[in-house]
Design a protein around this nucleic acid. Structure first.
Length: 210
DNA sequence: AAAACGATACACT
DNA sequence: GTGTATCGTTTTT
């Protein structure tokens, strides 16, 4: 008895519209080792050409190619020399908007998640942060481009338990400076208030020059 | 050179 | 138990 995935048409809108609606939904990944599922508690919208913080800002490249494709696929990228982060690609084919999956609660496969997250001090840290989330789920380079809207696929986006709309909060994105340093904060981060798995807010601090 | 970050060590409650 | 400053590592521009 499998649950239907989230409909692709639901995701074929600008990431900024999709992002708050994605809170509470579930990303599930199955590998030979087993299945881990995460209920999303924190996300961030990235718009395409108009968004200096977006990987798509400078046009299509081999790295961000998936972002320009149709909605409902996973954009996985490698960063900081050691981490992977995952986005749900939104909007119509040719338009690159996406939602970064920042944090969630592991609701299936906690033992497997724990084995992938040996440094986690508590269960709430399994997917508390964008690269921790991909690690707990076992997502990496091979999953870039995976279709999330196909039943029985090893990588699926599923409806979650109902969310109280009153718990949705919004604020500035994390780790992204304002538009070219002009100080404008983009309130495109969304989270569920009161969730212990939401990553701590860390204002953007320019790294010290070496 | 900077980047859509995490592990660690240590401070505090 | 929870918070936070410092620094590692490599892709991309």
């Amino acid at each position: 008895m499998e649950t239907a995935t989230i409909d692709r048409a639901f995701l074929a809108r600008p990431g900024l519209e999709v992002a708050p609606d994605l809170l509470g939904s579930v990303l599930r990944h199955t590998t030979p080792e087993g299945t881990v599922a995460v209920r999303l508690t924190e996300v961030e919208a990235y718009q395409g050409a108009d968004d200096p913080g977006s990987h798509a800002f400078r046009g299509r490249t081999p790295r961000n190619d998936v972002m320009f494709g149709p909605a409902g696929h996973l954009y996985v990228y490698f960063t900081y020399g050691m981490h992977f982060c995952a986005n749900v690609v939104c909007d119509v084919d040719g338009t690159a908007t996406a939602v970064l999956l920042r944090a969630g609660e592991v609701i299936e496969g906690p033992a497997l998640a724990a084995s992938r997250r040996l440094s986690a001090r508590t269960a709430r840290e399994y997917a508390r942060g964008p690269a921790r989330l991909t690690s707990a789920l076992g997502l990496g380079r091979p999953d870039n481009g995976a279709d999330l809207c196909v039943a029985d696929s090893p990588t699926q986006l599923l409806p979650g338990p109902p969310v109280d709309g009153g718990r949705v909060r919004t604020g500035p994105r994390v780790g992204v400076s304002g538009a070219g340093g002009d100080g404008v904060a983009f309130p495109w981060r969304f989270w569920l208030d009161g969730e212990p798995t939401v990553s701590p807010y860390r204002p953007h601090v320019p790294k010290r020059r070496k």
